[in-house]
Design a protein around this nucleic acid. Structure first.
Length: 910
RNA sequence: GGGAAUAUAGCUCAGCUGGUUAGAGUGCACCCCUGAUAAGGGUGAGGUCCUAGGUUCAAGUCCUAGUAUUCCCA
């Protein structure tokens, strides 16, 4: 007779294989259709705690890559983690929509010439379309990896009210006196016709001239030699800077250079004579040299910034083209001349100031193409000309080398007292960081050291796709109008019409009715705001404005890549500290970057780019999410096919263990009370509780990799390897409602519930699927995973020693392995065991037999002793089993061949 | 050129304030089971703890210098 049908074998509708690539999209769509995000909020309407996550806006340009996925999935996991803890959570997705990259792409599409003819608002409309298109693409990409956020009312920096709010933030800062206007040399991209922020500059190798030029002194028959790498700035030369700290000498062939550099200069053939008299820099101060290019005066000035690392110890000064030059000229009251227009071409100023002998030759030409001509025109004054390659700033977008060019710009002043307590913005932001917790902690110092050193924030750009710095100026005086009523009215217009109104409407329409300013005497400022100002004010436009149901200000958490120390973390802190005097966030988490298998960055040219969409389609988004969670994301992570395969294996193990748990608890109707459970099961619950506590602790610190490693360990060793193996006999062979069986099934249900809760933030889809296929003891009244809430397994003491159990089993299986290998036994059920003295007194005979998967625990045996081992003072003796094999439970407990053992006999006859 | 982070088994990660023979999972090899079966179990082989110095009775852990990779800045 086949007894298989009399067994209670595991049964479940939960499939072994997830078919994730096919099934996930359906579920994700369902969640989307049901608006699960809103449901989550409704579920926590009564929650006492809330958690505001403020999403850092990705740039709405191009499809998402693995870095976007990492970023959003970590956010999603953390938000869900707080949700399943029982908090009301907020996660409004956002996009950064303005800025040069989009403007540049649209410009490429329509063509530069066509763009010029186009009305500004028309062009801005095209930029808007471009951004909106990619927002949809990116949105879908995020949904495809199971991210749940407010995607229905996301915040977009291009929205009318959003633009109005950014503008209001600017006005608030202006009203505090922090906005200053200065003409200052800035990094200028002539190719993009805009000032560039530090963040928009890339350093690349460039070949430049290295030239030595002699400037003849007016009062002496000697020449000072200067060194420069930018010949094109020579026409704008206004002086030569020496340092009091450097000793200068004249040479017998009539040149003046630093004494320390003489040997080197002589070796290079720059000077040919010998050292003559010593010259004091002070003596030359305020005397004049002659610019050999145009015969203009060049004033000798002194400053300590001059170094003797290279050059001659005398520095060519063009105040329109260098920051130090500018500063020094200001102190000597020397005029700043900038004969270069926004396209990087020499303009009419070269005529006005007679900067060249033949100005016609240069007018309208890009300065970088003029170097050779300048050198030629220098004639004999050019002492040496070499080329060399050095690291030089380039425009991040156009990849063209940039120039320094003095322009009028708006700055946010960092060192000007403004706060109620009289502190400066720099002091304020540094102080505000005291109240912010950083993960990892090193992030705080990283941000601090930047804040201590950073210059004033240049927030103006001479571009079109952005929020206008919508201020009026008095034409005659260039004075800014910061009249509150004027600003408020403009903001109100932006609320209704968006910032395009600044371009579409006339000045008289933009002024409030009854305003005393005369429209025809005013002009508009045409600059737009740095996009970092946009994103820096999202806390205001999103959290404070009440336009979105996005949570509270300040936010509980900001989370971005570590590059945002320079970017968003800083711009947000600056804007919020300037206008509200507090930090916009309470916690900041940073993540690293995703590298290839070798830890190198991905790039198209290297061909090592991993497409997240491909992984979702081949393995499933859950595998991708598990990869994120198992990575040490606060550092750089690696991804490769091999790594993904490995993660897929971990997923498989996890899934199958859950499947077995579901299958084994399938017919349980009610979880037994603790008092009705056996010591052995309670022991395992205590072990589980200990593990889950450690996991929760790791998760509390957002260390998901550590927590998952613990879960994985538990799953493989304790659950799958021990508990589930040991309890099989009672589950399959015992009578349906035996105490043994109910007790173990109850423990399993509790453990399953705990693990579902722990893993729900990470493997939301899978946990939902598990729940749908679970028995009512696990599922309870929950319709889906989002109905679940924190289930914490309480900690209990157990008199059983986990250490002894593990050690005894390990020693036993070591001996068994030998027996199996020499074919003396096939199964441990062929064995009996004697434990003397009894190491496991607290559990009954059956539990001890099952613990070792043997047939009988004996006090003595007539069979031959096979082997012994010792654990913690107890001696374990292994015997061949004395009974016959029961055809139902396979234990060697039957009294004779082919007959059932006592237990099975009983079960069958019930 | 400057600031910062990381470096432990083929892979993903542990290793607390310095203290036995450096751990786990996975992968790999071999074996068992076929009542978790496109599953499950067991055993085993894998390490110059990036390199070189130093402190110490004792260094994966502390110090110094360097290398590689990454991020940020000039």
């Amino acid at each position: 007779m086949d007894y298989k049908d009399t067994l209670l074998l595991p049964k479940t509708s939960f499939p072994m294989r997830g078919n994730l690539p096919q099934n996930e999209p359906k579920k994700y769509k369902q969640w989307d259709d049901e608006n699960v995000y809103e449901k989550m909020k409704a579920n926590r309407e009564e929650a006492s705690e809330s958690f505001t996550f403020h999403d850092g806006p990705p740039y709405a340009n191009g499809p998402i890559h693995i870095g976007h996925v990492l970023n959003k999935v970590i956010k999603d996991i953390i938000v869900k983690y707080h949700y399943f803890l029982g908090k009301k959570v907020y996660f409004t997705a956002g996009w950064d929509c303005h800025g040069l990259p989009i403007e540049h792409q649209v410009e490429k599409k329509v063509g530069g010439a066509k763009k010029k003819e186009m009305a500004k608002s028309k062009f801005r409309g095209l930029c808007r379309e471009h951004a909106l298109k990619f927002i949809e693409i990116q949105k879908q990409g995020f949904k495809n990896v199971g991210v749940i956020a407010d995607f229905n009312q996301p915040y977009l920096t291009l929205e009318k009210k959003f633009e109005a709010n950014i503008y209001r933030e600017l006005c608030r800062i202006a009203s505090k006196g922090l906005l200053v206007e200065r003409s200052k040399p800035v990094h200028w991209s002539w190719a993009a016709k805009t000032a560039l922020a530090e963040a928009e500059i890339e350093y690349k190798d460039k070949e430049s001239h290295s030239i030595y030029v002699a400037f003849k002194l007016q009062d002496r028959d000697e020449s000072i030699i200067i060194w420069t790498t930018t010949p094109w700035t020579l026409p704008a030369n206004q002086g030569i800077v020496l340092s009091e700290k450097i000793e200068y000498i004249s040479t017998t062939d009539g040149f003046i250079v630093a004494r320390e550099l003489f040997d080197k200069l002589k070796k290079d053939g720059i000077v040919k004579g010998d050292i003559g008299e010593t010259i004091l820099a002070e003596k030359l101060e305020k005397t004049k040299a002659i610019n050999p290019l145009n015969g203009r005066d060049s004033l000798i000035m002194l400053d300590d910034f001059v170094s003797i690392e290279d050059g001659t110890g005398a520095v060519h000064n063009a105040p329109g083209h260098g920051e130090d030059d500018y500063r020094i000229c200001l102190s000597y009251d020397v005029q700043v001349i900038v004969p270069v227009d926004d396209r990087g071409c020499y303009d009419e100023d070269i005529n006005k100031y007679n900067l060249f002998k033949d100005t016609e030759k240069y007018l309208g030409r890009n300065v970088l193409t003029c170097n050779e001509d300048v050198l030629e025109d220098l004639g004999e004054a050019l002492i040496s000309d070499n080329k060399f390659t050095h690291s030089y700033p380039h425009c991040w977008r156009t990849k063209k080398p940039i120039i320094f060019r003095a322009t009028k710009q708006f700055f946010i002043a960092l060192d000007k007292p403004y706060a109620e307590d009289g502190s400066t913005l720099r002091e304020k932001i540094i102080g505000n960081l005291d109240n912010v917790k950083f993960y990892p902690q090193t992030g705080k110092n990283r941000l601090l050291s930047m804040l201590e050193r950073r210059p004033d924030w240049c927030i103006s750009r001479q571009r079109e796709w952005g929020v206008p710095i919508a201020f009026f100026r008095v034409k005659a005086t260039k004075e800014l109008i910061l009249d509150e009523k004027v600003l408020n009215y403009v903001a109100m217009i932006f609320d209704m019409h968006g910032a395009d109104a600044w371009y579409d409407m006339e000045i008289k329409e933009l002024l409030y009715p009854g305003c005393s300013h005369k429209p025809d005497q005013l002009e508009k400022v045409n600059d737009i705001l740095d996009v970092w100002f946009d994103s820096g004010s999202t806390w205001s436009a999103v959290l404070e404005s009440r336009e979105y149901d996005a949570g509270n200000f300040p936010a509980d958490l900001y989370l971005e890549g570590s590059d945002q120390h320079r970017g968003w973390f800083q711009s947000s802190l600056l804007v919020s500290s300037a206008s509200r005097e507090i930090a916009p966030y309470k916690n900041v988490i940073t993540h690293g970057f995703t590298m290839d298998a070798k830890g190198r960055k991905m790039s198209k040219s290297e061909g090592n780019v991993i497409d997240p969409d491909k992984i979702s389609k081949e393995f499933g988004s859950e595998v991708l999410r598990l990869w994120v969670a198992m990575s040490d994301y606060q550092n750089d992570q690696r991804i490769s096919n091999e790594i993904v395969k490995q993660i897929a294996e971990q997923y498989r193990k996890l899934r199958n263990t859950f499947r077995f748990l579901l299958a084994n608890t399938n017919d349980l109707e009610k979880i037994s009370s603790f008092d009705d459970m056996k010591t052995f099961d309670k022991w395992f619950l205590s072990l589980s509780a200990q593990t889950f506590k450690e996991v929760s602790l790791a998760f509390d610190n957002y260390d998901f990799a550590k927590g998952l490693n613990k879960i994985n360990n538990f799953l493989v060793n304790d659950l799958s390897g021990l508990y589930l193996d040991v309890t099989k006999d009672r589950l399959y062979c015992d009578e349906k409602n035996s105490l043994n069986r109910l007790s173990s099934m109850s423990a399993m249900s509790i453990i399953t519930k705990s693990m579902i809760y722990l893993l729900a933030p990470i493997l939301t889809y899978t946990m939902d699927e598990i729940l749908a296929n679970a028995s009512s003891t696990i599922k309870e009244n929950n319709n889906d995973i989002f109905d679940c809430k924190h289930f914490k397994l309480k900690e209990i003491e157990s008199e059983l020693s986990t250490k002894d159990i593990i050690e005894a089993r390990s020693k036993f299986s070591e001996l068994v392995d030998v027996m199996k290998k020499d074919k003396s036994i096939k199964s441990t059920l062929e064995l009996d065991l004697k434990i003397e003295p009894d190491l496991f007194k607290s559990i009954d005979k059956e539990d001890k037999e099952d613990l070792f998967l043997i047939s009988n625990l004996v006090k003595e045996s007539e069979e031959k002793e096979i082997n012994t081992f010792e654990v913690n003072g107890s001696k374990f003796t292994i015997y061949k089993a004395s009974g016959s094999k029961c055809p139902r439970c396979w234990k060697f407990n039957a009294s004779k061949e082919d007959s059932l053992c006592e237990r099975c006999e009983k079960v069958i006859n019930v």
